[in-house]
Design a protein around this nucleic acid. Sequence first.
DNA 1: GTCTATACCCTGATAGAC
DNA 2: GTCTATCAGGGTATAGAC
Lengths: 224, 224
Amino acid sequence: MGPRKTTTRERLITTAAELFWRQGYAQTGVNEIIQQARATSGSFYHFFPAKEDLLMAVIDHMSEKLQVEVFEGSDNTVADPIERLFSVLSAYRRYLAANDFVFGSPLASLAAEVSENHPAVREKLSEFVEGWTSQIEGLLTDAGPRLPVNTDRRVLARFIVNAMEGGVLQARVSRSAAPFDASVTQLRTHFDLLQNDVESPKAPSLPVRSTPRREPPVGDWKAW
Amino acid sequence: MGPRKTTTRERLITTAAELFWRQGYAQTGVNEIIQQARATSGSFYHFFPAKEDLLMAVIDHMSEKLQVEVFEGSDNTVADPIERLFSVLSAYRRYLAANDFVFGSPLASLAAEVSENHPAVREKLSEFVEGWTSQIEGLLTDAGPRLPVNTDRRVLARFIVNAMEGGVLQARVSRSAAPFDASVTQLRTHFDLLQNDVESPKAPSLPVRSTPRREPPVGDWKAW
DNA sequence: GTCTATACCCTGATAGAC
DNA sequence: GTCTATCAGGGTATAGAC
């Protein structure tokens, strides 16, 4: 492959990605995308039969970009899996802070806006989140005996993703990085405690709580 | 105050609240709201000069409803502050599960969709989140010596809110309660560990980590 | 406060020449 | 593949009688 100029299709996708991210899907008109991408209506509908088809392409584009800039853009010289995890979180923060957190999570916004109205979009976003969760779960598995044996790696991975995504959302709404940083700080504490628990595994057998813990029946909605 | 029928204004707000929650703000047309509320265009614009004014009223309505159904709808016979917290989380789960989690967080969706385009809306949503965070922080403060002395109650409260809101979002996208429940389960573990830490506070002074912890400079974006 | 009718604009999408 | 011109429809919002 020789040197290659940006194609119209690529420009449509990248500019749409940015506009959707900033303003949302519904708020962004096709005309606006066309203008800003220096394209025409004819080109647009040549590549994308409908606006939703562009949306699907945008999600693919964003997924790939996030994968590259955050996961692979983190300090992958870090050998320790847990420190590697925090390196990823740090890369995510850098990515978001580059826009002062105002754009929020690139895909979570779309999830909230269009997941109900466009089933295919919801499906794609779901796969993306699962992918990230699995990657984090992989790091936790690599941590091996560093974490207590009874730690459910998948639950912990989901927990981390939730705390981060929630943090981004609140950061955007409150126009402050504090909510995001609270998640990272407390996650660090969480891991410190988990690792202490490995060292002295007898302690947690005497909980202070008054009521017994109830394990939620996962997948069973209406219960509890 | 005697018995009172529902006013047109109220019907407009409640039906709009549900429609915004389900479909998003932009996807919901004024006509749709008017029809479903059995009102007319004239009434609508009599009460609300513009669609955005209705949105503001809807947010107020949702905030109040959430406060009543979740916080006050939780089991407030529970005296222990920490168990009280988990009672609130349980009430929140009940509230969401009543719609099979498909609607997501009533206000977070709006936050993601319209926060950038409507500054006044963003401000109102920010205040709402702060209110909830403060209420949770209050419970944590009430827990007093049950938590380690060096625990920043505000950071922990933010962390909890983040984990819950993130969980709701992923639950909606993945059409499964599992992500939400993962947050609750792991938060329970987190509190167990924190309380163990109170009992044997010497243990955490020997962390396994290889690199020193970095406290993030809150409010200072571009750093780290 | 509520009704009907309607203005006016911007939307996504199409047609057909080049 | 790209262009211009244009369509049909739904969007928010208004006017004015009752």
